[in-house]
């Protein structure tokens, strides 16, 4: 199978798992809704019976926003400070869910059931959790090394400059140079999970090592597929931004319409996760036959 046929297959495969997608979407909504409702309470108590809220319908009225933040910034700060913890919780939840997703995708002929999905989750959770810790450490190491190296490079290039242009160009270059290895690392982490599910290994360091070897041996194919698949969420995001700018949220109706569009977009983001796993699973199976 070539990269394009794997891409096409993954599109169909991910889309076919509608019940799993709904389940994953519902989990996303539940986790996010808790904090969103707390945010809503702050808004309600903060604005009370003022008419200043009507100023917010046409856009973010700076006066109203600033005065609200002056009075209720502390409460909003508490809500925002929780986002990091929520993200961590969601990472752990997704470490759990990844097992279910991959187990479901592996069994092409079997019909999706919630029970078997969660059975897959439980089967791989502790193995994936170890992978998460391993790659978490690698991620931190990468960030530290890269920041030191790129920081030194950045300072050397921009020191004593006579124009801000090199400064801006090198900022962009530095960010790109950070994201490329980050992406490779995340791809290796994904293939380590895929390899674990396909070979049912319990040795996670070895799984990670094997995954790294797989990625680098098939670098062109792996990254081609990754970049090709990445085009889909980018296209979806562009469509969303276009819709948001075209429709806006200035009336009750448009708020409702945009809410529906936003939730469809979130569903596509959930689908993207399944889509990536599906493609990676297929490529891994094609290039590294199961032992």
């Amino acid at each position: 199978m070539n990269v394009v046929s794997i891409f096409t297959f993954a599109l169909k495969r991910a889309t076919a798992e509608r019940r799993m997608l709904v389940l994953l979407y519902v989990i996303n909504v539940i986790v996010a809704a808790v904090l969103a409702l707390a945010f809503r309470s702050v808004l309600i108590s903060g604005f009370g019976f003022t008419m200043a809220t009507s100023e917010l319908m046409q856009g973010l009225n700076f006066n109203t926003f600033q005065e609200f933040m002056l009075k209720h910034g502390a409460e909003v700060g508490v809500i925002f400070s929780q986002i990091g913890w929520y993200a961590l919780l969601y990472i752990i939840i997704n470490t759990l869910l990844a097992g279910g997703i991959l187990a479901t995708l592996r069994e092409k002929e079997t019909r999706f059931t919630v029970r078997e999905f969660f059975a897959g989750c439980v089967t791989y959770f502790f193995r994936f959790f170890r992978l998460f810790l391993l790659f978490g450490i690698l991620l931190i190491l990468l960030a530290v090394i890269w920041m030191v190296v790129l920081g030194a490079l950045f300072s050397a290039v921009t020191a004593g400059g006579s124009s801000e242009v090199p400064y801006i160009v090198w900022t962009v270059v530095t960010v790109i140079l950070f994201f490329v290895p980050l992406m490779v690392l995340l791809v290796i982490a994904d293939y380590a999970k895929v390899g674990t599910v396909l070979s049912n290994t319990h040795a996670m360091v070895r799984a990670a090592w094997r995954s790294a070897k797989f990625v680098f041996r098939n670098f062109l194919k792996v990254m081609s597929l990754q970049l090709l698949m990445l085009l889909v969420p980018i296209a979806l995001f562009i469509i969303y931004v276009w819709l948001d700018l075209s429709i806006g949220m200035t009336t009750v109706t448009t708020i409702l319409v945009m809410f529906v569009i936003q939730q469809i977009f979130i569903l596509t983001r959930v689908w993207t996760r399944v889509f990536f796993f599906s493609g990676e699973l297929e490529l891994y199976s094609a290039l590294q036959p199961r032992r």
Partner: peptide
Amino acid sequence: YTVKFLFWLQNILQLAAMIG
């Protein structure tokens, strides 16, 4: 603004899910 907050939070969570 609740809906906007919910949407961006959901996006952040899905972004974090890439690590999980």
